[in-house]
């Protein structure tokens, strides 16, 4: 696959014209579904993710409940026509099962689950279009959906990937960079209390590159965090008299 690798950095610019520290264009909307207790859509470039939250609600089956906290359940999945190229089988893949766990554990540190013992909070992340960064867009959207559902959180969780392509550390990998780059490192954080809730690395970085990449990721996360706040506030703008 890597045999046909295109040149990813040309005269300092990336394949989609961005500089290494640029995010793709981002759109966020909160409260897009009626039945769910909370919901949000996040678009970053051509990647588009819908997140919905139900709860806290009774735990079914009962034996899964925990006496001192709410359990968080999360399912990440891609719609069958969301990927480039061939149709994706709707059966859950190993990747989707891992990402469901990774996303849940990115969000757990933020949720004040002790307020709702013996209940469940369900998070559903549906990828409508996948062109790189679906897990990070999923975390960003799920955190908005949780806030929209009124579930107490210590902070919003924002996420973005960084990586290394043609030797350059870049922010917010698109599909092509993800496929042919040397490294891909998704990061999630609670910016206002300065805690990192998810980090993965797929690829090879020197310790110096890692430091630079993490700094760039946190910088991107801050920008996404501000957009999240704007999107939430937008739902509650003053009504014109």
């Amino acid at each position: 696959m890597k045999a046909n690798k295109p040149q990813l950095i040309i005269e300092g610019k990336r394949v989609d014209g961005r500089t290494p520290s640029d995010l793709r264009p981002i759109k966020m909307e909160v409260g897009v579904l009626r039945n769910a207790d909370g919901s949000a859509i996040v678009e970053i470039g051509n990647t588009k993710v819908l997140a919905a939250v139900y709860g806290p609600r009774e735990v079914v089956p009962r034996h899964e409940e925990q006496v001192d906290r709410a359990i968080i359940r999360c399912r990440y999945r891609m719609l069958s026509f969301s990927t480039m190229g061939e149709r994706k089988s709707p059966a859950p893949s190993r990747r989707e099962i891992e990402l469901s766990k990774v996303i849940r554990e990115a969000l757990e540190p933020a949720i004040v689950s002790s307020q709702f013992p013996r209940t469940a909070i369900d998070i559903f992340v549906e990828v409508l279009n996948a062109e790189g960064g679906t897990r990070t867009a999923g975390i960003t959207a799920a955190s908005l959906a949780l806030a929209d559902a009124g579930i107490p959180m210590l902070d919003l969780v924002a996420a973005v990937a960084v990586g290394k392509v043609d030797g350059v550390i870049v922010l917010d990998l698109n599909e092509v960079e993800d496929m042919y780059g040397e490294a891909d490192m998704p990061v999630a954080a609670m910016p206002s209390i300065g805690k990192i809730t998810m980090i993965q690395l797929n690829g090879v970085l020197t310790p110096e590159e890692f430091k630079k990449a993490l700094k760039l990721a946190l910088d991107g996360i801050n920008r996404i965090y501000n957009l999240q706040k704007e999107a939430l506030k937008k739902k509650y703008v003053e009504i014109e008299e």
């Binding site: 107490p152 919003l156 910016p191 206002s192 706040k229």
Partner: peptide, 8 residues
């Protein structure tokens, strides 16, 4: 004002 999760 409107406050959001994470505001201190």
């Amino acid at each position: 004002t409107i406050r959001l999760p994470g505001d201190q």
